[in-house]
Design a binder for these strands. Structure first.
Lengths: 336, 336
DNA sequence: CTGAAAGCGCTTACAG
DNA sequence: CTGAAAGCGCTTACAG
């Protein structure tokens, strides 16, 4: 087993002090007035023997890991996968690595992940909070941890977050459907008290009530299997034969919804208008193409990283709460 | 700023030694014959003050981080996102966390990521190797690092890997197309010397030549924009008017292909059969639904984790190379 | 049954 | 210009 070299080994080989090696490796040679010749010799040896600094030791000593803990609901969901990818890119550019896990929107799992992140001494946290996680977030904040929430927030806690205007977006989308002449518009959403789902429902409700239209709401259990979701949606459509349009409150409900509609042999647009929250390859390419409320993924990711890094830089406790506008993309599925 | 408590603080508060606290925290109270009363008192205090062990210090001391470094090509690609999700789940169940990044199939970026992982002292590596990364993988292996490759491998290096039978799968898919009566079958693939793309092309070529059919090959530049890929495919289809079927060699080429076909107003199946490598929501739900060669994602993930953990356990250098069969899922797009 | 002490690989204040 | 030494928070061999 080839022994891994340490700074001490390098110093010994060159008969100089550990201090000098450390200074040189950290680019402080000039500042510390180490002779350029020595610096060159050290760097050459380091390169030749393939010395790799031990970041654990470094972090233990400096108290900084340059790691950001990212907890998303589900990395296999394209929305979160895309956000994660962009956060990773942005973070890398600024010298941070992402440590990152799926919470499955499960409280216990989120608690465990937060604990793991704390143990690993991450510098900051970006979290899509599961329900019931307030206590743990408060505990983080009490320990001066830097936290930014996204996708949804916790109304009882004054934290930084980046969300979209779920209510305004849904309202705008419903208004569009109504203007297109749809009257019996249903919403398929999740049984969830989380802010993002609540606000989407509120936007729907507000628009419908303003136009004196009847609400038609289907709530799907959160962790249901794809098969069950499809069955539930089929059931919902079958039992509400007057429905002329459906708003799906999140991407995978929309995907399941298209499958349900296909199985029922219903024709989108002529029989049923369709609009979904979140964009997706499927919605763009489906025939007919599906109108969506797309989340501004780039903007979200940039804001998340910027806010978190600002928090890491500053001592003062400034809270930044950003609400971005989702973009209504009109396609064939809502054209009457 | 609330000070973070250490084991020493806990010991001091209870007027006992650091050693005892450490033993108790690590569940060695009984083994070390520490009185249950003391153990209970320690655990209670730890719980009350919210002590969190510093994993950095622990890892530095023990030489074990319980972190696996995972380098995928692109986490926003559903194939990799799904594999990553499953690897994460499996790893978590077995006490490991995943540290994980996208390489964009870029050699330099992969090298940097490997370096970062080394610095962080990850226990093992799961990597989709970019081209030209041989030297770095060899260097890892020389340092006794535990490495498993996936999706593609490096023929010149004897490492463990998990791949699918790209050649056999493509051959089977082509044979199916030919049996359905398609004769002028084109393949849209990437300009790439990597094993996975080469083998898919070989499977296509072999099947076509065995049946005396003419090859029709389009290679797309690897990092091209979606728009360009669509244009290239449109161009390819337009210039080869005799084409009666297309095989897309990877998921995002298939997605772009559907878009190209849609823009050209060509009818899938009647004008053109379509089959793609990798499954995707879009392929399942598209009208007509698209036949695919699906990769066995669960099996891959399980094998990856199992092999890596085996390597971590054992001293001896056993290399495990697994080739799984992709599954041909026949849908409407290839039915004549 | 319990504790003092060395050491993992770094950084950096201090001394010369 | 350079070096010896303390200390980050742990684990564990050794001693009693």
């Amino acid at each position: 087993m080839k022994k891994v070299l340490s700074i001490a080994d390098i110093a010994r080989k060159l008969n100089i002090s550990i201090t000098s090696v450390s200074f040189i490796l950290n680019g402080k040679a000039e500042e510390k007035r180490i002779s350029p010749e020595l610096a060159k010799r050290v760097l050459k040896l380091v390169n030749d023997v393939g010395y790799v600094p031990n970041q654990l030791a470094k972090s233990l000593r400096t108290g900084k890991t340059n790691i950001i803990g990212l907890i998303v609901e589900d990395i296999s969901n394209p929305f979160f996968a895309n956000v994660a990818r962009l956060i990773e890119e942005n973070a890398n550019d600024r010298g941070y690595k992402i440590f990152y896990c799926s919470s499955e929107n499960n409280t216990i799992k989120t608690q465990e992940l937060i604990k793991v992140f704390r143990e690993r001494q991450v510098d900051g946290y970006i979290i899509t909070p599961a329900a019931g996680i307030e206590k743990d977030i408060v505990s983080l904040l009490n320990n001066q941890a830097k936290v930014v929430l996204f996708d949804r927030y916790l109304p009882s806690i004054n934290t930084s977050y980046v969300i979209v205007d779920n209510m305004g977006g849904s309202y705008k989308a419903m208004t569009h459907l109504i203007q297109q002449g749809f009257k019996n518009i249903g919403i398929v959403t999740l049984k969830s008290d989380q802010t993002q789902m609540q606000k989407r429902l509120e936007g729907y409700t507000l628009a419908m009530e303003e136009h004196g239209l009847k609400l038609c709401i289907k709530k799907i259990k959160f962790h249901d299997s794809t098969e069950n979701i499809i069955d539930e949606i089929k059931d919902f459509i079958s039992k509400n034969i007057k429905l002329d349009a459906i708003f799906f409150a999140t991407n995978y409900l929309g995907v399941a919804g298209l499958e349900a509609i296909k199985q029922l042999n219903i024709s989108i647009t002529s029989d049923l208008g369709v609009l979904s929250f979140d964009d997706h390859d499927l919605f763009r390419l489906y025939s007919p193409s599906i109108s969506v409320l797309a989340q501004p993924i780039e903007e979200m990711s940039e804001n998340l990283i910027n806010i978190l890094l600002d928090h890491l830089d500053e001592e003062k406790e400034s809270v930044k709460q950003i609400m971005l506008s989702p973009k209504l993309i009109l396609r064939e599925s809502t054209q009457r």
